[in-house]
């Protein structure tokens, strides 16, 4: 079973800015954010609340238009949401009226994939995320961890060249989160997709990513991008892990104090 059917894409975020107008004046949620993500790379976006990481996420996903700058998937600018990107949102947002099978197959239905091929693909994905036996269950019967697996399978169904994840594991307990992180890394290794993973959890960011982009707020911007030169699987008890952790934490702390660079 060959999952690597689409070449992973390069993601270019170029001088993206977002200003929100309100009756009380304008708020600059994002200022001059630039980031280059190579094909197949796993990037974590980490930062304090209010730094604009969710706004940036939604701009990359094509759900929000930037005020300035642009986002490019390979050479093509992102103008709206599309199926070349797989998206996993914070609260999974499964369609409650559809079974696991129905949720996973949604994107394939939109692409008019014929039924037999669709079913085959759904079976592959159920296998991949480990939900055998729950194909015909409704979301109401699933635990948080299971729902997240369905959300992931749904996002991967159309073989996207970019996978976007917005704090996908924040709503589950620590053990489940650990297991899902490991499973995500396995899946990533198998599919080779480019991944942009937003989180507020520094440990999670270090554990997963090739590079960690640390964001700051007021205005929202990328303060620094740190290479994580550790072999996976990574344990936080590792000395180097701790160094990275302190490095990122101090960045967030200084920036959190409000001063711009």
């Amino acid at each position: 079973m060959d999952m690597k059917q689409t070449d992973p894409s390069r993601l270019t975020i170029e001088s993206v800015g977002k200003v929100y107008e309100s009756p009380r004046g304008s708020v600059q949620a994002l200022h001059d954010v630039s980031l280059q993500i190579s094909p197949g790379e796993f990037i974590s976006l980490v930062g304090p609340s209010g730094c604009g990481k969710t706004t940036l996420f939604r701009i990359v996903a094509g759900l929000v238009e930037p005020t300035t700058g642009s986002v490019l998937l390979n050479e093509t600018p992102v103008s709206g949401p599309g199926e070349n990107m797989g998206i996993v949102f914070q609260e999974y947002h499964l369609f409650p009226w559809r079974t696991v099978r129905g949720n996973i197959g949604f994107g394939l239905e939109q692409q008019d994939v014929p039924k037999s091929e669709r079913n085959k693909r759904i079976e592959e994905l159920i296998d991949l995320v480990g939900l055998e036996g729950f194909e015909d269950s409704y979301p109401k019967a699933l635990s948080g961890g299971m729902k997240q697996r369905v959300a992931l399978a749904r996002a991967l169904a159309t073989n996207p060249s970019l996978l976007l994840m917005d704090e996908p594991f924040s709503a589950v307990d620590a053990q489940t989160r650990r297991r899902l992180q490991d499973e995500l890394l396995d899946i990533w290794e198998e599919t080779g997709t480019t991944v942009l993973f937003v989180t507020h959890d520094i440990e999670e960011a270090i554990r997963l990513a090739d590079r960690v982009a640390v964001m700051a707020k007021d205005p929202g911007r990328v303060a620094e991008v740190i290479d994580i030169n550790l072999e996976r699987p990574r344990t936080r008890t590792d000395q180097d892990f701790g160094t990275y952790y302190e490095q990122i934490l101090s960045l967030i702390d200084t920036e959190y104090a409000g001063s711009g660079a």
């Binding site: 996903a61 759900l63 949401p81 599309g82 199926e83 949102f89 949604f106 939109q110 692409q111 159309t158």
Partner: peptide, 10 residues
């Protein structure tokens, strides 16, 4: 959010 998800799925 459900509408956003649907949009992102095509």
């Amino acid at each position: 959010d459900l509408l956003d998800v649907a949009r992102s799925l095509g």
